[in-house]
Design a protein around this nucleic acid. Structure first.
Lengths: 205, 205
DNA sequence: CAGCTACTGGACTGCCGGTACAGTGAAAAG
DNA sequence: CTTTTCACTGTACCGGCAGTCCAGTAGCTG
């Protein structure tokens, strides 16, 4: 890795850790540069300001989440050919994943940014919007495919249902943080899984 | 109203407005005292520090939400005697309420506090926990009563389902903020309403 | 050897939360 | 009618923070 690229990655890694634990504005640049072993000037060489750091963190986070979802859906496809079973398996895997991930990282970059957004430039808000919209599109495709074989038993737009997945994840993180009960997040994903089953599973003949 | 009480209320009112729009730490004390027409010293006479302001805001917010829920459930009880219909009416009223409230206030004090909690003292976290727990208890009672007449069609704890209501509200706010689409919140409440109907409505004979 | 990249180091500005403390007008208590 | 208390004002100060400016420099590259 080239000299500059490696330093930039080190900054992002240290910043990511701190931001997920403490929130964005509780993380000072001084603290980041201490962890990444460089100077304040060095930081501002790589990022014009803290907004640029936020955008880089959001983009990186979105990439990692996309890969995580790729993995989950690939595994679900291996385990079943049935569209409904695939979704239910994917939701179970998602619950397990957040259970493990959130043990280490109690925060979520997207929500953190959303609740401090007046602090941020429009670049940051736009990066955040893109990250959420990517999840929405992903789940729209999944639910529309599902609805072809399993017509939903209630009148609901697949786009809104796609948003529900994201809503439960973000809301679950808020709840877990507010209550100080980490498992709330995984539990809520499983509740959603049960409700989705009811929404698509045909009545027993 | 006594002199001091009126000033304190004015501070809370100005602070509330600013915090809901911009987040807690983007709201400076200078700005609050300017809006409330007093001095910095006057502010610190009423609140020892910003944490105390946060606690007061959370408590006030929790009271208002409790009254809102009282109103919704009272109205639902007027409109139907059937437990399931009451819940469905209440969810509809809730969706309408958030639609209107969130037109003016894009934020939620609870979530705002949850995402900046490393900045706050344990007092603030505790106030936040109490506020969320109050909602949970409220909806546990509602769903347990409902389950007596309408046994749920899926295995789910009423406590977890109670949390789901809160989860969808908090998550909906995050989504609405992140996407810049206000109506997402009300839409998600209505999606949850549909899913709850499926979870409790008996199959047509 | 020249020039570019990737920094270091230090001085500086302005905003913010918070502290300290002396003074003061109005109202309630004696 | 005086004294005390409440509810502040005004001013000065501190340390931490983001961000700016700029001069210097080590190392790699053509």
């Amino acid at each position: 890795m080239a000299r500059g690229v490696e330093t930039r990655a080190r900054i992002l890694s240290v910043a990511r850790e701190a931001v997920l634990w403490k929130g964005f504005d509780a993380t000072s640049i001084d603290e980041i540069v201490a962890g990444a072993e460089l100077t304040r000037s060095g930081f501002f060489y790589h990022f014009p300001d803290k907004n640029a750091l936020a955008v880089a963190l959001i983009d990186q986070h979105a990439d990692e989440e996309r890969e995580m979802l790729d993995g989950i859906f690939a595994r679900a496809a291996e385990l079943s050919d049935d569209p409904l079973q695939r979704v239910l398996i994917a939701m179970k895997l998602l619950a397990e994943t957040v259970e493990n991930v959130e043990r280490d990282y109690p925060g979520c970059i997207v929500a953190t940014a959303a609740f401090q957004d007046r602090l941020f430039s429009s670049d940051v808000r736009e990066a955040n919007r893109r990250a959420v919209a990517a999840w929405r599109d992903r789940f729209i495709a999944v639910f529309e495919e599902l609805a072809e074989s399993y017509p939903p038993r209630t009148s609901v737009e697949m786009a809104d249902l796609a948003d529900t997945v994201n809503t439960v994840l973000e809301g679950g993180i808020v709840m877990a943080k507010a209550l100080g009960e980490r498992r709330v997040l995984a539990t809520q994903v499983l509740v959603l899984r049960n409700l989705l089953r009811l929404a698509f599973e045909p009545p027993r003949a």
